[in-house]
């Protein structure tokens, strides 16, 4: 059971900053679920987290219209 951070209603680039902060206490290899709004957030945050060396494992649209991102923290484990 991975941790979840709800970033619905949080705009760019603050949502990316908050996702990074949520990943910080995790050790490499641990997973985080991030809830993101459709539109700019889902186009920016997953790719930006990948560019920071994390692995995007899954990204899918939920029934309510937002996106659920599962990301694994990168770096030496």
């Amino acid at each position: 059971m991975s941790e979840t951070i709800d970033l619905r209603g949080v705009g760019c680039p603050l949502n990316f900053v908050k996702a990074k902060l949520a990943l910080e206490p995790l050790t490499a290899g641990e997973e985080l679920t991030v809830l993101l709004d459709d539109g700019e957030p889902v186009r920016n945050v997953p790719r930006s987290l990948a560019d920071e060396g994390n692995a995007v494992l899954a990204l899918g649209k939920a029934a309510e219209g937002h996106f659920e991102l599962r990301v694994r923290k990168g770096g030496a484990s």
């Binding site: 186009r43 990204l59 899918g60 996106f67």
Partner: peptide, 13 residues
């Protein structure tokens, strides 16, 4: 450079 996870964000963007 990476495998598709079928998120559909490309079509959305």
């Amino acid at each position: 450079e990476g495998a598709c996870i079928a998120c559909g964000v490309c079509a959305d963007a």
